[in-house]
Design a binder for these strands. Structure first.
Length: 431
RNA sequence: UGGGGUGUAGCUCAAUGGCAGAGCGCCGCACUGUUAAUGCGGUGGUUGUAGGUUCGACUCCUACCGCCCCAGCCA
């Protein structure tokens, strides 16, 4: 007997095949029954007629429960009444793995805490399957975008000495070396690699021990960080807008069924094309003050301010050249206004907020040393990073795109935690 | 770490100081085309924990715990 995956059943119409999967719905009308199963590639409705199957098959059917793993055999036929357009007239049914009656996920609304406690099962539901497929599509698109443009992927270490951003670090014992810290960014290694390979990107998990409890934060998240030798801040933004547009267009082209499953308004995504508006920080402050915000020049922009700015646009926007006090030590001083640095945030539309932080990097050894000392960072920990400015320093720029935030925006999710298979948050380490 | 909210059946929620309930799930019966099937019947509780006020507490008070939302930090 031929076995098939549900997604391939159209090519088996009229044939008898075996499909294996998990029971999602059971419906019975006495002598006609429906068993709906899921195999990860799709959903199949099978039809069981009591008088047309062996008594033992009907008996096995009558004991089925939600999520029982089964094998069904029968003829595939087109039927408009079936989800997916094809159904199976069931001849045989065998149980592969039983499922007790207390399976926690029901076909109804559940609270988020309950769902996260049952994430290992929640993942089986249609919306979650669609989100994970879109995430995987985006990950593939990321690889394709950079590969097609001649970038080298460089995998940077996850265990590091204390180096990176200012916010919280996770630490662990590391042999005779004292503590190691989980990487908050691959950027500094990316800069070293850019001098070796010209155009690189990193793509991996990053860790922040921030005590954040918002819809936009995870303690473990995946970040894409390109770094390009000889790019300036404007080149950097051009790369960002091409990149983000590429990801959105790819999902629109290849995952329309999944976008429909998550009920995304795709007309909002169809607008996402380069160029994105660039708003100077100083102009943004003036605009915000005119709109009634209390923000003062020198303040970082709060979530409310960002929402006010992005509300006027139908695509992501760049906020460029923030005051240096608001940003990291490695960002290059703006020659036209030394109070500021050559950087940008990219804010997604529809209130999804910051998805990218990027900058041209400070390439002057004296200036970066000065900033490092202003920030009271441990100079010794940065010795190799500073040496990049000593031996053949070079202008370069890069950015970091948060994968889960990007997925949340593209699928229209209210929460980042359904955009990664097993989210890690301040109070959640399992499953 | 601040501000706000919340915690009652397996799940989602009612019960505003006076007998702890509903829907869903689950179990049983009926039903030959269901789409979260339907109809009838049944099952289900240490009201987060500890203390206090009261004749009487799911309800009011105190502390603790969990969770949610917002802010900050950032991606």
């Amino acid at each position: 007997m031929t076995s098939a995956r549900i997604s391939d059943l159209a090519s088996h119409a009229g044939q008898s095949v075996t499909v294996r999967g998990w029971v999602t719905h059971l419906r019975s009308s006495g002598k006609v029954a429906f068993v709906v199963l899921r195999d990860g590639t799709g959903v199949l409705q099978t039809v069981l007629v009591k008088n047309a199957v062996a008594p033992e098959v009907w008996e096995r059917f009558s004991h089925l429960t939600q999520e029982t793993c089964i094998a069904v055999t029968g003829e595939v036929r087109a039927d408009a009444r079936a989800p997916g357009g094809y159904e199976m007239g069931l001849n045989d049914l065998t149980v592969i793995g039983e499922s007790p009656l207390d399976y926690p996920i029901q076909p109804k609304e559940h609270g988020i805490d309950f769902l996260l406690d049952n994430r290992h099962f929640w993942l089986r539901t249609p919306r979650q399957v669609a989100i994970m497929r879109i995430r995987s599509e985006i990950e593939q698109a990321i690889q394709d975008f950079f590969y097609e443009r001649g970038f080298l992927r460089v995998d940077t270490p996850i265990l590091t000495a204390a180096i990176g951003e200012r916010s919280g670090l996770f630490s662990t014992e590391y042999f005779e070396e004292g503590n190691a810290y989980l990487a908050q960014t691959g950027q500094l290694y990316g800069e070293a690699a850019a001098a070796a390979f010209g155009k690189i990107y990193t793509f991996g998990p990053t860790f922040r021990a921030e005590k954040s409890k918002t819809r936009r934060h995870l303690t473990e998240f995946w970040m894409i960080e390109p770094e390009v030798a000889f790019n300036d801040s404007e080149d950097n933004m051009k790369l960002q807008e091409d990149f983000v547009s590429f990801l959105v267009q790819r999902v629109l082209e290849r995952r329309p069924a999944e976008l429909k499953e998550v009920e995304r308004d795709v007309t909002k995504l169809e607008n996402i094309k380069a160029p994105f508006p660039r708003i100077n920080y100083t102009d943004a402050v003036a605009t915000l003050q005119a709109k009634g915000s209390a923000v003062q020049w020198g303040d970082d922009l709060g979530a409310e301010d960002e929402a006010l700015l992005v509300a006027d646009y139908d695509r992501p926007i760049f906020i460029v050249n923030y005051p240096k006090e608001a940003k990291a030590f490695y960002m290059k001083e703006n020659p036209d206004d030394p109070r500021t640095v050559l950087c940008n945030d990219c804010l997604a539309p529809e209130g999804y907020g910051e998805i990218i932080g990027g900058s041209q990097r400070e390439d002057d050894l004296g200036k970066i040393l000065h900033r490092l000392r202003e920030e009271k960072l441990p100079e010794a920990a940065y010795d190799w990073y500073l040496a990049l400015r000593k031996y053949g320093t070079f202008p370069h720029a890069g950015f970091g795109l948060g994968l889960e935030r990007t997925v949340a925006w593209i699928v229209g999710s209210q929460h980042i935690r359904e955009c990664i298979a097993f989210p890690r948050m301040m109070h959640r380490l399992r499953p």
